[in-house]
Design a protein around this nucleic acid. Sequence first.
DNA 1: TCTGGGGTCCTAGGACCC
DNA 2: TCTGGGGTCCTAGGACCC
Length: 424
Amino acid sequence: MIGLIDCNNFFVSCERVFNPAVRTKPVIVFSNNDGCAVAISNEAKALGVKRGDPYFKIKGACNAYGIEIYSGNHKLYGDMSTRVMAVLSAIVPEIDIYSIDEAFLHFETFDRSTLQSTGRDIVRKVRRFTGIPTSLGIAETRTLAKVAARFAKKYPGYRSCCVIDNEEKRRKALELTPLREIWGVGRRLSRKLNDHGIITGLQLADLPVDAVEDLFNVSGKKTWMELNGSPCIGFEPDDQQKQMMCSRSFGKFLTTFDDLAAAVAAFASTVGRKMRERSLCAVSLSVFLYTDGFRSDLPQYYNTAHRTLSEPTADTLTITAAATDALRSIFRKGFAYKKAGLMISELTDSNHIQQSLFSNPADRERRRRLMETVDSINRCTIGHDTVHSGSYSPIDNFVRREKPSRLFSTRLSDIITINCNHGS
DNA sequence: TCTGGGGTCCTAGGACCC
DNA sequence: TCTGGGGTCCTAGGACCC
């Protein structure tokens, strides 16, 4: 049996851990530039707020109903995620971290008849040790575990843990699950299937195999098999990351090459640091930029440029130079740029790199030590951008964040204070 | 005024090979 | 009038996930 544990309204829950005053209020966490609602408390959902709603459209409702709003604080969420995963790892022998707020739990070695109480115990411990509420689904396949987790979250009767461990429960659960809620069935596939009269998860699961081969590609067939209890979606723990991206929409339009180059240098600095943290090197990269697609009154432009590096590297300065060169080749004057990004593809393990015929080992070593020094200064001392390349300007300069919360768990000066007044 | 960011996988179609 | 067959590799774009 496999479990799927999901943190409830994760970003909102993280904010509530450190700000008890908003625990019973409607709360929304927004994306960068305070653009879209990305996490919504149950209270705010009840007021009609939906994931993806842009702030400017729901501002009135936020004011009218006294909804608490936050700009995304992803450092805080990342740290809280690490804590949740640590608690889970201490209880279950093997976990697959699937996203910032979800993990699959391996219950193969557990007694099947006690999974319900074991599951509730796990949820209780995560809540107690981290403050984060979660929902846990347990079933024979990952896709069914996802279905179970949805029930655990939706219906209080399950007390945060739902187990699908027999045929009757499987069919009942799928019958009550709309197609679109099934893991792997997106907007397009659900529309297509709806046109064939398939509305529920059970109708999908009950399709004959030839209909499945007719309607689906290989991913769709895997989903179908999983719904019928045959595990076929796995998880390769040593799967190496294949690409890495850093991109931003800007809080205001950028029009000059220098401003865009400063943003691209910041992206290069971020991906460089992440690559070094994960012992990865880049072989090729691409830079892209966009004007604002929502502004049909303005001239539109999109372009992307690729560069191949002479040998795999995680050196921020090399990447910045190549990325700046790529940017120069696509930058056009006269446009108001809204978004740009840097994508690294063909990532390789830095311990097994193919060196260029003409590379100089002494140079490589000097650069490696330079980056190591930069990282250690930025990691341990004053701030994450204490040392940086000359063309760089911090990403924060390009995005708008009007309601940031503090770095409660990772910066000492932001730690919460508790006032203990006797008699109150 | 104002609409996010970071990933993976699959497929179709083109370039190229013999 | 009329122009083969079979294969690989790469890339862009779409669908999906969180």
